[in-house]
């Protein structure tokens, strides 16, 4: 019997890293947006920071999909 433990490790790591970085980026964006909303000083900076975080978050999702679809040339675990 041939159980692919390496694949399980891959799934675990990818799930943890993927979801944690996604949530971290989105949370930072939410926090920066909240700061931008109630502080007059530095609001512009916080707001642009939030936008950057949101965009990075979107990029991360697209990267994940890119890696999965074989037609796009991504070849993740294989």
């Amino acid at each position: 019997m041939n159980i692919e433990w390496l694949s399980f490790l891959t799934v675990t790591l990818v799930t943890l890293i993927g979801s944690l970085s996604l949530v971290a980026l989105y949370s930072f964006a939410v926090r920066l947006k909240a700061i931008a909303e109630d502080e007059v000083r530095g609001a512009g900076l916080a707001k642009s920071g939030a936008v950057v975080c949101f965009v990075l978050c979107g990029c991360l999702v697209l990267l994940g999909i890119y890696l999965i679809v074989p037609q796009l040339g991504g070849s993740g675990g294989h």
């Binding site: 799930t15 944690l20 989105y26 949370s27 930072f28 939410v30 926090r31 947006k33 909240a34």
Partner: peptide, 27 residues
């Protein structure tokens, strides 16, 4: 993963109480 993510999300968006509400509406 969900456990760690939830902890992380609440930790990152936590703001000193009294100053302002955490405003997690973005989620």
């Amino acid at each position: 993963a969900a456990y760690l993510c939830t902890k992380l999300a609440y930790w990152v968006t936590k703001r000193p109480s009294g100053l302002s509400s955490p405003k997690r509406g973005g989620f």
